[in-house]
């Protein structure tokens, strides 16, 4: 089997398996998987920048929230139907990531982390400041009537699962395409040795900007879809916690693997869900996982799988 077809077979099998689970899973697990798939797209987007390009952002919530609020505000205040509202959200995330990229990429390393963090904090405060429109911390609900997409009621759990799966498959295709393309190879080269990549004649800044914009726009798509699928838009999604979570998911699942972000998101969602049944301090799990991962398992789950079992894993 050629490298290309075995990659297609593997990822096709994952999507098919999730489709099969749709008919089997009990409600609780069905719901978690639907949510995980949407958040996994956010994690995959984060991975484009962190895993493949080696740029650690602490402010991705800004892009996620740009997509979510671009969708939500245009839906509530302008009466947009889901399609245009999602487009609106994606456009907002594209614009925000372009501006943040142009500014933040003048820095690198620790400074880049702090700059992205600060931009995201400013975005979060903006949501709170314009509480008149955003309803601040409390957030707002997208009414059921505004969640009809091409005749499908997205408030219905079954439709929602399928919609999430379509989004997830789209995310997989985009990241696979990006990673295996010339563009993706250059991103990896920049991660490995930026100066060498520059001296091979690559315009490093433009490639990095491309990575930020792709990552930010895809994050925005995930945010917009999360809002429309689950019918709620709130400031939590703009807070620093939602910048840390994708980092956590990607580290756990395995940075610079295509399936890692999904695996990490899935495990972490369960861990947090289970622990929140026992204690309000469920974020303790996140803290412990972060420390343990940095100390003992930098590769993450799929990174280990690649190292031990499937060396060709993309």
């Amino acid at each position: 089997m050629s490298a290309r077809s075995r990659t297609l077979a593997l990822h096709g099998a994952v999507v098919a398996a999730i489709l099969a689970l749709h008919f089997i899973l009990p409600d609780y697990h069905h719901g978690i998987l639907a949510r995980t798939m949407v958040l996994a797209v956010y994690a995959m987007a984060y991975n484009v920048m962190f895993g493949y390009t080696g740029l650690l952002s602490l402010g991705h919530a800004l892009f996620f929230a740009a997509g979510m609020y671009g969708m939500g505000l245009s839906s509530i205040h302008l009466g947009f139907s889901p399609g245009p509202a999602i487009v609106c959200g994606v456009a907002a995330a594209f614009a925000v990531s372009l501006i943040v990229g142009i500014l933040a990429l003048r820095t690198s390393g620790v400074a880049l982390m702090i700059v992205t963090l600060m931009f995201a904090q400013a975005g979060w405060y903006l949501v709170l400041y314009f509480g008149e429109y955003t309803r601040g911390d409390e957030g707002f609900v997208i009414p059921r009537a505004a969640r009809m997409l091409a005749g499908f009621d997205l408030a219905d759990a079954s439709n929602r699962y399928i919609a999430a799966l379509v989004l997830f498959a789209f995310g997989l295709v985009v990241t696979l395409k990006a990673v295996e393309s010339r563009f993706g190879r250059v991103l990896v080269a920049i991660r490995e040795n930026e100066e060498r990549a520059r001296m091979l004649g690559y315009d490093v800044f433009r490639y990095k900007l491309g990575a930020v914009v792709l990552s930010g726009t895809l994050s925005g798509l995930a945010g917009a879809c999360y809002g429309i699928l689950f019918g709620y838009v709130g400031a939590t999604f703009a807070s620093v916690q939602y910048s840390i979570l994708p980092l956590l998911w990607v580290l756990l699942g395995g940075a610079s693997t295509v399936l890692g972000p999904f695996v990490g998101t899935y495990f972490m969602t369960y861990l947090i869900d289970i622990s929140s049944a026992y204690t309000t301090a469920y974020m303790l799990v996140a803290g412990v996982v972060l420390v343990v991962l940095t100390l003992f398992a930098r590769q993450g789950i799929m990174g280990e799988v690649r190292r031990r079992l499937i060396p060709w894993l993309p």
Binding site: R185, V186, V188, A189, E192, N193, E195, R196, A197, M199
Partner: peptide, 14 residues
């Protein structure tokens, strides 16, 4: 200054 964690092929292919 090479890409130490990439293959010889990928180094030259870049």
């Amino acid at each position: 200054s090479i890409f130490a964690r990439l293959s010889l092929r990928e180094n030259v292919a870049l």
